[in-house]
Design a protein around this nucleic acid. Structure first.
Length: 775
DNA sequence: GAGTTTGAAACT
DNA sequence: CAGTTTCAAACTC
């Protein structure tokens, strides 16, 4: 598979170039090839033109990007070294692990994994074949860190091998990023994971099996048929066995639907775990092995076969995505508990799938909370009615989940393809999201998407919403909201569930609750009323900003701010009474608090991004903190907070994410409550994040990012996307399209130069699909 | 688990 | 817009 693929690439390219199709594509694509030195590139672009993949996995891309950004630091260095070598995966991994450790700090593997998984899955589902391409593209388009971009490009152009390695690294990075994101703290879950990570580092170094796999890999592709073997290998802690098998796998090279699942598993960042934990359940091992395999898959993507397979597998992969999204966190939990059971991998595939599936639907069994987002439909529903477009866009992110959820891959697929362009643009920047539990968002997105597309809101509501909430609770305690309303009937913002756009669930101990699917009409009507009074009522209260330092981009609690600001009088913003504190963000000039001592950043300390705004002076208390915070508070504060409030480890809670997205939308819409309606709570956040990232990417300086973000984002950018109502998603993509930036010509290595003619709104997406079909 | 504190939401 | 009331979460015991 592998070798043949590579060869194929070269030959086909020439053909493609000559072919009318190729010309047509070129005409369509915004990017022109100054010269097509490398056939491979052109070929890749054409054949792989995995627009769908890229688009399909906007989430992923976005997440990846964010992850990339964070990791890129590490990963890049590692990649640079690693890229050259497939075999050195172990090294790269080690570096990654190290980086992960560094970031681990608060990182909770569970959440992170989710997010990471989500991203990974996205890629896989899109097109394993495309992966290599996609990654580069993402990098190109991605607003991600500049580093990421250039690297991928080079790799892309130069060597498939590098690409592969890069992808693998990226994948790895993704997995780890979650750790980094850890800042997100959601789950306490994962002290274990952290420990595991550490173990990983040790083990990784020691363990060769991963390296072996990766080496083989460059080509290793998991064939569905072989999956069993692969799984077995994975299961087998014994490296030797893995090694022996690894060679075989590459030939098979078929992308595996499982890969996505595998990625999910990866979330657990189990590689290290696996090795150490031979004891650990096979699941963990699988996860680790899967991650590796996934990387391999990317390589495989190159093959046309892989493409075909990938198409078939998409459904499965997406399913996996769903799991990741919904069950990522659970999985970890489950893994611990289930690991033993899952270990029974009579069939690697089956087991892997089962896991995924289980978590996703039934999987929630273990912890209902696992699916925090499900309840969110309210927003989605409201929106769906209004703007189909918006819904669609939202769907994109959610669509993944949906796809996985629903059997209708094709329909979803089509939708996704349409939406994908947006995703791409967005994908560029979603570092923010990373911090936030991707899962929750994804879930929310999914829910919304499902609701909008399938009108299944009720179903979800009944079942998953609860789970989602619980998940929040589990992860960040906050994630799963349970209300205890007595008099509000859960139809007022007093009710956290209602405020979050989620239906009340079993865990809720509310009385006379009307915030249930049964009373959907009432809920929607009430929501409308509230929105009429305050369009932003359901908007996220906390807006996160992406801070970019040098190449690095990361979310920091400090970067996020409560939109309205708090009004604390006695709590000194040191308790959850304070919404800012509760949201894991520092107080801002918008706050009217007294005696602010917000551990995440005092009002005084708050400096509007871009511009340094002196503290209002209400409270001089924080002067000390202010200085600190301005410079690097985030980390410190973060740590402190984490210590005190493990739950807050992730400054940004799922809600926050949602809120952010919402806010952006609203802000953009200027008062209009579009967001709730337009984007399901869950979905919007990503879009926002994407916007943000894009913006950030555009912004010259990190500091400015915040300012611009605040200023411009709400007004200009977010409005487009969020508003998207007016503007087609595509348009949004165009405007936002980081493409222009990202597209930057590949550095020296790439034979082909790309020039941005114009940035059509990723016409390629659909087109690619067509091309693929043609091929 | 009950009671208190707190601050947002809702109301006037 | 400001003041008051209502409400439910957060917190304390």
């Amino acid at each position: 598979m592998d070798t043949p693929e590579r060869n194929r690439i070269c030959t086909p390219k020439s053909k493609f170039e000559d072919s009318p199709v190729f010309n047509y594509l070129n005409s369509l694509s915004p990017i022109k090839s100054v010269r097509s030195a490398n056939i491979s590139q052109t070929f890749n672009s054409l054949s792989f033109s995995s627009p769908p993949s890229v688009f399909t996995s906007p989430h992923v891309s976005s997440q990846k990007e964010s992850r990339f950004l964070r990791r890129n630091f590490f990963s890049d260095s590692a990649k640079s070294g690693l890229a050259s070598e497939n075999g050195n995966d172990g090294n790269t991994r080690v570096t990654d692990a190290e980086t992960a450790e560094i970031f681990n700090c608060s990182a909770d593997p569970p959440q992170n994994p989710d997010s990471s998984s989500g991203t990974k899955e996205v890629h896989l589902p899109n097109e394993s074949l495309e992966l290599a391409i996609e990654l580069p593209r993402k990098l190109k388009y991605g607003c991600e860190s500049p580093e990421s971009n250039p690297v991928p490009q080079h790799r892309y152009g130069t060597d498939s091998v590098r690409e592969i390695t890069g992808t693998s690294s990226s994948l790895r990075q993704f997995v780890q990023p979650s750790l980094e994101s850890c800042s997100c703290p959601k789950n306490g879950v994962e002290v274990q994971e952290i420990s595991q990570l550490e173990q990983k580092n040790d083990e990784e170094e020691g363990s060769d099996w991963e390296n072996m796999i990766s080496d083989a890999a460059g080509l290793l592709v998991l064939d569905p048929s072989n999956d069993a073997e692969a799984t077995k290998e994975q299961l087998n802690p014994n490296i030797s066995s893995l090694n022996s098998q690894a060679p075989d796998l590459p030939q098979e090279g078929l992308p595996k639907p499982q890969s996505g699942c595998l990625e999910n598993d990866n979330l657990g960042t189990g590689e290290g775990m696996v090795q150490k934990n031979t004891n650990c359940t096979p699941q963990k091992l699988q996860s680790t092995s899967r991650s590796k395999k996934q990387v391999k898959f990317h390589n495989e993507k190159v093959d046309d076969k892989a493409e075909k397979d990938s198409k078939q597998q998409r459904g499965t992969r997406r399913r996996c995505l769903l799991f990741e999204m919904g069950g990522g966190q659970k999985r970890r939990l489950e893994d611990d508990s289930k690991s033993g059971s899952s270990s029974s991998p009579s069939d690697g595939k089956v087991t892997s799938e089962d896991r995924q599936l289980v978590p996703f639907k039934a999987g929630n069994n273990s912890s209902p909370c696992m699916v925090p987002g499900i309840g969110l439909h309210l927003n989605a529903l409201a929106v769906s009615g209004k703007d189909n477009r918006v819904v669609k866009q939202e769907n994109l992110p959610s669509g993944k989940s949906l796809i996985s959820m629903s059997s209708n891959i094709t329909s979803l697929h089509s939708v996704e393809s349409e939406l994908q362009p947006l995703n791409k643009t967005f994908s560029l920047s979603s570092l923010e999201r990373d911090i936030v539990p991707a899962v929750s968002e994804d879930q929310v997105m999914q829910d919304a998407y499902q609701a909008s597309v399938f009108g299944v809101s009720e179903e979800f509501e009944s079942g998953s919403p609860r789970k989602r909430r619980r998940r929040y609770e589990n992860g960040g305690d906050e994630s799963c909201k349970r209300c205890n309303c007595k008099k509000s009937k859960c139809l007022k913002l007093y009710c956290e569930c209602f405020a979050a756009g989620v239906y009340c669930v079993e865990p809720c101990s509310c009385l006379d609750c009307f915030n249930k699917p049964i009373h959907e009409d009432t809920v929607l009507a009430t929501r409308k009323q509230i929105e009429s009074r305050n369009p932003l009522a359901f908007a996220p209260k906390v807006i996160s900003h992406v801070a970019e330092i040098g190449e690095e981009t990361y979310k920091t609690p400090a970067s996020a701010r409560h939109k309205k600001g708090c009004n604390c009088k006695k709590s000194s913003c040191l308790k959850k009474y304070c919404e800012c504190f509760q949201g894991g963000v520092g107080c801002s000039i918008n706050c009217r608090c007294e005696g602010c001592k917000n551990a995440f950043g005092t009002k005084d300390g708050y400096v509007p991004s871009g511009e340094e705004i002196e503290p209002e002076g209400e409270e001089s208390e924080s002067s000390e903190k202010n200085n600190m915070r301005k410079s690097l508070q985030i980390s410190e504060v973060h740590n402190d907070i984490e210590e005190q409030y493990p739950d807050h480890v992730t400054p940004i809670t799922p809600f926050q994410i949602c809120r952010m997205s919402v806010q952006l939308e609203f802000s953009s819409s200027s008062g209009k409550p579009p967001r709730p309606s337009i984007f399901p709570v869950g979905s919007s956040p990503r879009l926002l994040s994407n916007h943000i990232q894009q913006i950030s990417g555009v912004l010259p300086t990190p500091l400015k990012l915040e300012k611009q973000f605040q200023i411009a984002a709400p007004e200009d950018e977010t409005p487009e996307f969020l508003k998207g109502r007016n503007s087609s998603p595509i348009s949004g993509v165009k405007t936002a399209s980081p493409n222009g930036k990202r597209v930057s010509p590949p550095h020296g290595k790439s034979t082909r130069k790309l020039v941005l003619q114009s940035i059509p709104s990723f016409p390629s997406l659909t087109f690619h699909d067509q091309t693929d079909d043609h091929q």
